[in-house]
Simulated assay, not measured.
Amino acid sequence: MPAAYGFTAYGGPQVQRFLDLPRPVPGPGELLVEVCAAGVNPVDWKVRAGMHRAFLPLDLPAVLGREVAGVVVQLGPDADQFAVGDPVFGTNDRGCGGYARFALLTTSRTALKPAAVSWTDAAVLPVAAGTAYDGIGRLAPKAGESLLILGIGGGVGVAAAQLACDAGVSVFGTATAAKREFVASLGATAIAYDSDDFGERLRKALPDGADAILDLVGGDALRSVAPVISMGCRILTVAAPETAARFGGRPLSRASTTETLTELARRVADERFNPRVSGAFRFEDAGSALAEVESGHPWGKVALDLRGDH
């Protein structure tokens, strides 16, 4: 039975495959978990494509995946804040290894999973929801202010919209026309970027400009909303720091600490936040799960559910 799903060389989907690898050994500040669910993110295929190799060098073959939820089975040195048998979720500092039956987590980026939170919901919180939480925290939109999210229909946008709406912020987001109702279900107003009258719709929705912008797309998408970038508009980007800098914006640096993850899980348990897992694939269908994310059109989050495979 394959232990992991990863890639043997940098390139396209053709380099992906199941791998028979030894069980990882936790180092200092690490936990070994038996994986119950793993999150599937755009960063995964970008790592496989070699887009991150300059700052994330990997020994190949490498296992895909950055975030998991599972049960602790072994503690590394200096990891005694957790115990064997704990249900946890998080990421690791190595940047990969999640599409596997056993994976390593870094204690400073790991939190206990509440019983009221499902394994798949917990598994998709660290990357997208963690990014959204850090972004909303940095932008600090106040109740009554307007926030424009570029790319609101993806995992980070879905999380950011809910977090901002919960704080009383008026949220608007760019998305395809097909996602208008989905965006509305988040409490936000969608502005279809694929409509002929996008500029008119944008100015009508934000006649006084946006107080804050969270850019999850970059490039032309950020330039296209220049008419509503008001004086004093606060801009954060995860995609195009150079373009954002032209408008006075800054890149978003993520933390996703244990405290952040604990707060996100609490909100899920209290039903104040929904990670919106749109698809849960079996481990044997890991390639299909990543293909759905790589297509660029998932609605919400995609996860691997390994519970039936143990």
Rank of each mutant, 00 (worst) to 15 (best):
S288Q: 12
A255H: 13
R276F: 07
T258D: 05
A79R: 07
G173W: 00
K113C: 09
R267V: 02
G76T: 09
E242G: 05
R201M: 04
T174L: 01
G218E: 07
T189E: 10
V225Q: 03
T107H: 08
E181Y: 01
I149R: 00
V127C: 13
G50A: 07
A143T: 05
H310Q: 12
L31N: 11
E242M: 06
K301L: 09
L222A: 11
R234Y: 02
I191K: 01
G65L: 14
A129Q: 08
T120I: 05
D197H: 06
A303P: 08
F55W: 15
D309I: 02
A9D: 14
A221H: 00
L32A: 09
L105Y: 15
R223W: 10
P207A: 09
G199V: 02
R109T: 12
L236N: 04
L60I: 15
S185P: 08
R66E: 13
K179T: 01
V228S: 03
T262L: 06
I235E: 00
L264M: 07
P13W: 08
R250H: 14
E200K: 15
G248I: 14
G248T: 13
F182Y: 11
A280S: 15
A140E: 14
D220V: 10
T8Y: 10
A49G: 11
K179L: 07
E284T: 10
L202N: 06
E259T: 15
A280N: 13
S108V: 09
S295R: 05
P241N: 08
G219E: 07
L290Y: 02
A286Y: 05
A245N: 04
S146V: 02
L202M: 06
A3T: 14
E242Y: 05
P61S: 03
P275H: 08
L148V: 00
T243S: 04
A177I: 00
D215G: 09
D121C: 13
K113H: 05
A177G: 00
L163C: 02
A38M: 13
P275M: 06
P207D: 08
P87V: 14
D121V: 13
F18Q: 00
G248W: 15
G308P: 03
A164Y: 11
